[in-house]
């Protein structure tokens, strides 16, 4: 028996919008810790890891660990039928091949339930060790989104370099080149508007902009984004989900041939 009641149902809607273009099918894992997902894109270049902690749900019942395979496009279709202010409850029964999404309007005058077929998915779970990163950049998520979008109109890849001067995003394409440098800026009205650069050592890595642009679909989930870089590791782009957990995207770097 599984019953997860999420008062801020819009969070789940936003999570689906952030993941459905990167991953087609995924197993949602439910345990005492929370509701989580780990899935790679079809080319095994990018990975999404989601955690919504059990404490973030108004009601969280998960009698035993369960994994539910879902087609994210179909799940998104169903969640789009929920209002932005709706409370969403996810229900499942042991051994059932369906999951139910129940939507309640804030004043309880409309209650809907949508039953979706589950699917068997061979999960390819990767072990991601805790790592020390050479540099961690925290910046407004809208700014990161803007940079990725702007640079992708010039080139296909971006070089992200962190030095003591700041973080530089560079691209080149047929029409020319572009460089955007963001310096640390803590003198802002709100902490989420700050750009904070923690650097242990300089790092420079190349990434496909197509994937970074896809990650920025998580922008509505958080005012700020954290980009963690190490020369021997995939980049981690993390959006914190208020009081609940996170959505993290991992992207393997490109290397010079």
């Amino acid at each position: 028996m599984l019953e997860l009641r999420l008062v801020q149902g819009s969070l789940l809607k936003k999570v689906l919008e952030a993941t459905k273009d990167l991953v087609t099918d995924a197993n949602f894992d439910c345990s005492a810790t929370g509701f989580s997902l780990q899935a790679m894109d079809s080319s095994h270049v990018a990975l999404v890891a989601l955690l919504l902690r059990s404490e973030g749900f108004e009601h969280y019942r998960c009698d035993r660990n369960i994994s539910m395979g879902m087609n994210l496009n179909n799940m998104s279709k169903m969640l789009k039928c929920a209002g932005n202010d709706d409370i969403i409850t996810i229900k499942g029964d042991d051994g059932s091949d369906t999951v139910t999404f129940m939507f309640e309007s804030p004043n309880q005058d409309k209650i809907s339930d949508f039953e979706m077929k589950l699917m068997d998915i061979d999960s390819e779970h990767l072990g991601i060790p805790e790592a020390e990163y050479h540099a961690i950049v925290k910046m407004p998520s809208s700014e990161f989104q803007r940079i990725c979008k702007d640079l992708s109109s010039i080139g296909d890849t971006v070089v992200i370099s962190v030095t003591k001067e700041g973080v530089k995003f560079s691209t080149r394409g047929d029409i020319g080149t572009a460089n955007i440098v963001c310096r640390q800026n803590k003198t802002v009205d709100k902490p989420e508007e700050a750009t904070i650069i923690e650097m242990n050592e300089p790092v420079s890595l190349t990434f496909a902009l197509r994937y970074l642009n896809s990650f920025t679909k998580a922008t509505p989930l958080s005012e700020s984004v954290t980009v963690s870089l190490s020369s021997e590791l995939p980049v981690v782009v993390e959006y914190k989900i208020a009081d609940m957990g996170y959505i993290r995207f991992y992207l393997a770097p490109k290397i010079e041939d």
């Binding site: 095994h44 270049v45 990767l126 072990g127 060790p129 890849t157 590791l233 490109k254 010079e256």
Partner: peptide, 14 residues
């Protein structure tokens, strides 16, 4: 053009 790495080169399957 730089070559694209695969995540499997960094993280092991569990």
């Amino acid at each position: 053009t730089p070559m694209q790495n695969d995540l499997g080169e960094f993280f092991a399957m569990v």
